[in-house]
Design a protein around this nucleic acid. Structure first.
Lengths: 148, 148
DNA sequence: GAATGTTGATATAAATTTCTATCAACTATC
DNA sequence: GATAGTTGATAGAAATTTATATCAACATTC
């Protein structure tokens, strides 16, 4: 009989060194991606990073954009900033007024802390915007969907 | 009395070497930007490039994105590809079906030749999409406008 | 409490991208 | 027709970005 348990993809289980090994990159590189705002790993109470399978996939997608398509990290940040997050989470006009990401932000929305908005106390790591529209290719189809 | 005539900004008057001098870059660099699909200079009957003041401004904007923001040329191409051109020129559902730029194109729309669409016989150099939404910053506000 | 792994930070190495110089053939202008 | 500037293409230089190695201090695990 099969006692194995299938873990959900978004359960953080990999330490930073395990994640680096899986990706074939170094630990400082992984930390750099985080500092640049490309990824948001889970953190333990003592501030140690833990990565999920989904995180690994996400990083692989980012690296593909860099390697295969020649997009720089700063370019990826700007592309992420074009995700119409306000439409995805359908935030209020009032929230948009108060939102640094909405108002000309050229970095991914999850790198702002949006005081006085619906996002203020949310964990961006679990937000639909962060989770679903971070593969560059998906952004265009999202824009297309909202113009239908 | 003043006999000076104010030329329209979009009138092509600068040769490639004059444009290069104005921009402080070399002639081959200017040609490269064109080959990459970032700019569409006017061409004479004998295939010689002629640039307008608007072209110069546009190139300066592109270079600013590269230098100041650290976006690579390939990144700028992808950003341009996210302009919702279909919404700007309001093309038909049928046209969208036939349009390589709409269907997953990761390059600026004006680098495709869109057979069997309203754009087929249009000069992209004179298109609103090319002219108005090529300063990176404007793309986000365009997306915002269409989601209102 | 000892061994292993993490933290942030700095400095250096590696890899890419951007830019320019140069070429022979063609075009424009005087 | 002679001079100056253009064309596309290639090859190489310059600049920038990406990735890694290393460090002392702290955390985890056994």
């Amino acid at each position: 009989m099969d006692n194995s348990v299938v873990l959900p993809d978004d359960k953080p289980i990999f330490s930073i060194s395990a994640a680096a090994k899986l990706l074939g990159i170094s630990v400082p590189t992984l930390r750099m991606y985080e500092n640049e705002g490309l990824i948001i790993p889970h953190k333990t109470e003592s501030n140690q990073r833990v990565y999920s399978k989904k995180d690994i996939d996400r990083i692989q997608c980012i690296r593909k954009a860099m390697k295969d398509k020649g997009i720089s990290i700063n370019g990826i940040k700007v592309i992420y900033s074009l995700i119409p997050c306000w439409e995805v989470i359908n935030c209020s006009i009032e929230d948009r007024k108060n939102c640094g990401a909405y108002n000309g932000g050229e970095n991914p929305c999850w790198t702002y802390n949006h005081p006085n908005t619906i996002c203020e106390n949310r964990d961006c790591r679990e937000c639909e915007v962060y989770l679903n529209y971070t593969q560059c290719g998906k952004i265009k189809s999202l824009v297309q969907k909202i113009t239908e």
